[in-house]
Structure formats: structure tokens, C-alpha cells
């Protein structure tokens, strides 16, 4: 039994790393067993198997920057150097989207991924306009403020979101 052997590591014992590994495994097993036993005996101990998924509280991504609210007929929406981002869900985007708009769905619980941020930065656009769902709060405004907070300049959102833009007939520019 490794625990009652000579000190692991003495120079006369060339196999000391293995002995130490054996001891480590034994200590881990004994400690785990003790932990499980104490937990079983403890009133209100943690069940060995979780009955349902843990509700993980992930804080909402910080909305920090300032974004311009643009009317649906704002001329900036038709400018060639404007990057149109659609923050709505994939289904909504498939159903209708402004020509030339890039899909970047906004999730209230997840920050914008570094990859998506890089794509926006590398687009070379002079202005970024986000089209959201127009709800309260508007996903377009949230995404625009998040992008502005992450250092992207000249960011705006369409007041009223996709519905207002569609109603106004201002369908962006050709793709």
C-alpha cells in the first residue's frame, strides 16, 4: 500500500513519481468518499444527481454607448457607406429584411461575439445603423448602444424598428 511505504521521493526510490501519483489518487478517492458520506448524512445535503438544469444567472451585457435614433426615412439609410445590421431573429429576418442588411441577431443575455464585432469593424462602413424589432425595449437600440459602448463610432438605430422601416417603404439600398 503506497501510503505505508517509505517516503516517496527519497533518492533510493526511483519510482517516487508513481508512488506519489498512487498516493494522490488514493487521497482524492478517500476525500471524495468522505465528502459524499458527510453530504449524505447532512440534513439538507445536496442531491447526488441534480433533478433539473441549474438556472444560470448570466448578467445582461452592459449597454453603455450612445446611439442616434434615426427616422425610417433618414437619408443615411440609403448611403453606400452605411452598414445596415438587422438585430431580429432568424425567422423575422427571413420573412423580410431591408435589402443589403446583414443579419446580426441580438441576444439580451449574450454579449456581441468578438467575431461579429470584428466583422463590423472590418466592413469599412462610415456609419452603422441597426434595425431592431421595434419593441420596448427595441433590440435595435440595445444592439446599437452595445456596439457604441464597444468603441464603434457613428452608430444609430431605426426608430420603430423593421416594421416602421417597412411601412415607410424605405427598404434600404440594393444588395
Amino acid at each position: 500500500m503506497a501510503l505505508v511505504r517509505r517516503i516517496p521521493g527519497s533518492r533510493s526510490l526511483p519510482g517516487w513519481p508513481l508512488a506519489a501519483l498512487r498516493d494522490a489518487c488514493l487521497v482524492a478517492a478517500l476525500a471524495s468518499g468522505l465528502g459524499l458520506a458527510v453530504n449524505a448524512l447532512r440534513p439538507g445535503g445536496l442531491p447526488l444527481l441534480a433533478e433539473k438544469e441549474y438556472e444560470i444567472l448570466v448578467p445582461c451585457s452592459e449597454v453603455q454607448g450612445e446611439a442616434d435614433a434615426l427616422e425610417p426615412d433618414h437619408p443615411a439609410l440609403r448611403e453606400a457607406r452605411t452598414l445596415l445590421l438587422d438585430a431580429r431573429s432568424a425567422e423575422e429576418f427571413q420573412a423580410w429584411h431591408a435589402p443589403g442588411a446583414t443579419h446580426l441577431p441580438y441576444d439580451y443575455l449574450e454579449p456581441v461575439s468578438p467575431g461579429a464585432l470584428k466583422r463590423v469593424l472590418q466592413s469599412g462602413a462610415a456609419r452603422v445603423v441597426v434595425i431592431g424589432d421595434g419593441a420596448d425595449p427595441d433590440s435595435g437600440e440595445q444592439l446599437a448602444r452595445e456596439l457604441a459602448g464597444k468603441g464603434i463610432r457613428h452608430v444609430g438605430y431605426v426608430r420603430g424598428g423593421a416594421a416602421a422601416l417597412r411601412q415607410a417603404g424605405a427598404a434600404g439600398r440594393a444588395p
Binding site: 487521497v27 476525500a31 471524495s32 465528502g35 458527510v38 453530504n39 445536496l46 447526488l48
Partner: peptide, 10 residues
């Protein structure tokens, strides 16, 4: 849960 119970004892 098994890890949450065992790891602190290790």
C-alpha cells in the same frame, strides 16, 4: 453535484 460535493474535500 458529485463534483460540487467531492472537490472541496479534495
Amino acid at each position: 453535484n458529485p463534483l460540487a460535493i467531492a472537490l472541496p474535500w479534495v
